[in-house]
Amino acid sequence: MKKDKPFYILIFKGVLIILLAGQAAFPVYTIIKSELALNSGAEYKFLVRPADPYDPFRGRFVTLMFENSTAKAFAVLKYNEMADGVLFVDKDGFSYVSELYKHKTVKSSDAVVTVRITGKISKNAETRFEYLNNKLFMNEKIAPAVDRAMRAYNGKIYVKASVKNGDMILKNLYFDGVEASEYVKKEVK
């Protein structure tokens, strides 16, 4: 008679099968989520400044420092905790987070972005936060040029992003309306 395998072996095999399915499911899930945000999310413009480039696995990018990095907290939040940032648009059309709430508590599909708290805070106080996506991947030749141009540019630099269900997908970087790679190409000429 065939001996039954111990229960823990079956559980372990189950975990392996789930993870194997995850190898296919995770990339597909990420693609679908990002496509949904890009195609049906609301578009916002955020003012940015440059920081530092390069990632050994994913190539060149420009790190963006969002000008908007503090907001009023309407809940007691901890350092490193995720939070809901409610988006507002100023008179020039640039977006910013002005209110912070506990993660997944604000009910709005396209005016809330997930952020990470970067300072110790108490309720009803201004606190520091960071946007989760601050890297814009670019061609390895263009990225350093864009980085240099950002440091020298005196006008308004902003990034366009799609927001849906807290996810923010960065689209493109602009120098006063001119797309970054176009701006750099013109400058080089």
């Binding site: 990420t30 890009l38 994913r58 190539g59 990018f61 814009l136 991947f137």
Partner: peptide, 10 residues
């Protein structure tokens, strides 16, 4: 994972 994160900047 690297390629997807690069495509969508995530």
């Amino acid at each position: 994972i690297a390629l997807i994160s690069q495509t969508y900047n995530i």
